[in-house]
Computed example of a mutant assay.
Amino acid sequence: MVDELLGATMLAGEASRNSACGRRAVSTAYYAVFHALSDLATGSLLPGVPNAAEDYVRIYRSLDHGPLKNAFNQAPLKDDARLRSIGGLIAHLQSERVRADYLPADPLLFPHAQVIDLVLQASQIVQELRSLPDDERRKLAVCLLFRTRKD
């Protein structure tokens, strides 16, 4: 689904004539990244389990938008330069997605060049996530899905 979502960002090409297409492209780009993270987490924790399996779906659906941004600002993710960099890009894209989805209509909200840049950033993030070694993928999955208790 991630590749299909990235493909759907072709709406970015229409952004120069239609601001709604630009907003949709920004939102879709973020969701491509979000689903890439869900894929990564599930594949790291349940390798080889079919997508339709109940456990697979449960983990896939466990990723939450709110804690996602904060997880990259906490150890051990903030201590890993590569993951910290990915997290910064994701946080920025997430903020832009919120603007795209919730701000009132404004044809100047996302200039065409910015839409293209955000879509390219999403593609870059997905490539980075896919190139992570298994130990970093597992660390990322655990940190994104499970909170650290402060007892």
Rank of each mutant, 00 (worst) to 15 (best):
Q127R: 10
T42H: 12
V115K: 09
L120T: 15
R138V: 06
L68R: 03
K69E: 10
S19P: 14
D101R: 00
A20C: 07
Q114A: 14
I125N: 01
R84F: 04
A32S: 05
A141N: 12
L63C: 00
R147F: 03
P104Y: 07
A75L: 07
P47I: 06
S95T: 01
S131I: 03
R97S: 01
L93G: 04
R61P: 04
P47V: 13
L6I: 10
D80G: 12
A91H: 01
P50A: 13
T9W: 07
T28K: 11
R84P: 02
L77T: 12
I125L: 00
D39C: 03
G87M: 05
G13N: 10
R84W: 01
P76D: 13
L83S: 11
P133N: 15
R147S: 14
S62R: 14
R130Q: 02
R147G: 15
R58V: 15
C143L: 02
Y60T: 04
G7N: 15
I90V: 11
Y56H: 14
L140W: 03
L144K: 04
L140A: 07
G43V: 01
Q74I: 08
K139R: 14
Q121S: 05
G88Q: 03
P111Y: 14
G7R: 10
F72K: 10
L145M: 03
L68K: 01
I116A: 15
A29E: 08
D64N: 04
A113H: 13
H92Q: 14
P107W: 02
E96V: 05
V2H: 08
V115P: 10
L40N: 00
L120P: 10
I86G: 07
F72V: 14
F72I: 07
A91F: 00
A105R: 05
H112I: 06
R23P: 14
L77P: 12
L45V: 13
D135V: 15
V57Y: 06
T9F: 05
D3W: 04
P104H: 01
E136M: 15
A41L: 06
I59R: 06
Q74T: 06
